[in-house]
């Protein structure tokens, strides 16, 4: 599984980073960077939490 960002929709609220700091972070310009392309089983719960907290629904699992 992997996380997909809807770039135009992402506004940089950063709640995903707080939920799953191991998987993603905001860079110095406030742009979301995914640190893992592929999400393994061990991080599935974290990935789902990050998707769930996005206030504008800009993340999904594919």
């Amino acid at each position: 599984m992997r996380i997909v960002v809807d770039r135009p929709r992402c506004e940089g609220h950063g709640l995903c980073e707080e939920a799953a700091p191991r998987l993603m972070h905001l860079d110095d310009d406030g742009e979301l960077v995914l640190d893992r392309e592929e999400i393994d089983e061990a991080d599935a719960a974290l990935a789902n939490a990050a998707v769930r907290v996005c206030p504008v629904a800009a993340l999904r699992i594919a």
């Binding site: 929709r9 506004e11 940089g12 609220h13 206030p55 504008v56 629904a57």
Partner: peptide, 11 residues
């Protein structure tokens, strides 16, 4: 709110 219309000023 949530989703496409989630509060634009929440930040």
């Amino acid at each position: 709110g949530y989703g496409p219309h989630g509060c634009a000023g929440q930040g």
